[in-house]
């Protein structure tokens, strides 16, 4: 036998600290093999944009195609729908949730998107340095604090939070969009951070 050439088999470094660099994700459970996937699994997998290939994460979720089929368009609508809260605002909600739940992979993806959209790397630098105690400009502070508080204890959000969000200029639709972006990362973090781990790219 010749020496193995598949570099994905070589041990790679698990990433434990928050970063904005692109990471890989290695599951703790087996992935669905696309070639032997059932018609239902193939249909759910076909909802992933084909130009990105099918990620290990989606191939893990394909074990339960009925749920994946609903989840993919739900996630996309929450993060990309027209109007309401800005794309960057939604990414900040996602980042706040991912910092509390310590989903390093989710945080890396959505911190990078936030920076790309808003051109404010200093916001991410401050969040990564001081995490839930980050000291941010007023608007970003309002979004981030709500994401942190809702994620940390949903039973504790109330009038104080709503007053603060409205005082920061958010409409009710923008507040609803923020709630959705935080909630969907309560979902995503509980999959990505528990079913696998982030690794440095080869």
């Amino acid at each position: 036998m010749s020496a193995p050439t598949d570099t994905t088999d070589t041990p790679r470094e698990t990433v434990h600290d928050f970063t904005t660099e692109a990471l890989d994700w290695k599951p703790y459970v087996g992935m669905v093999d696309y070639e032997s996937a059932t018609p239902s699994q193939r249909a759910a997998l076909s909802m992933t944009p084909s130009n990105k290939g099918i990620s290990p994460y989606v191939l893990v979720l394909a074990h339960e195609p009925e749920a994946l089929r609903e989840r993919t368009p739900l996630f996309n609508d929450i993060m990309y729908s027209e109007g309401g809260l800005s794309r960057g605002g939604r990414e900040l909600g996602a980042l706040g949730a991912s910092v509390v739940n310590r989903c390093v992979y989710c945080a890396a993806v959505h911190a990078a998107r936030y920076i790309q959209l808003e051109k404010k790397p200093e916001v991410v630098e401050e969040i990564y340095a001081r995490e839930t105690k980050a000291d941010l400009p007023a608007f970003e502070q309002a979004l981030f604090d709500f994401a942190v508080d809702l994620t940390s204890d949903p039973s504790e959000v109330g009038g104080y939070h709503l007053y603060h969000l409205r005082n920061s200029g958010l409409s009710d639709l923008e507040i609803l969009d923020l709630i959705h972006s935080v909630a969907i990362f309560g979902w995503a973090n509980r999959l990505m951070h528990t079913l696998g781990e982030p690794q440095r790219k080869a």
């Binding site: 949903p154 959000v157 109330g158 009038g159 709503l162 507040i175 609803l176 909630a183 309560g186």
Partner: peptide, 11 residues
Amino acid sequence: QVLLVAGLKML
């Protein structure tokens, strides 16, 4: 769902 219910209840 818990997070969404909490946020909607706030509104």
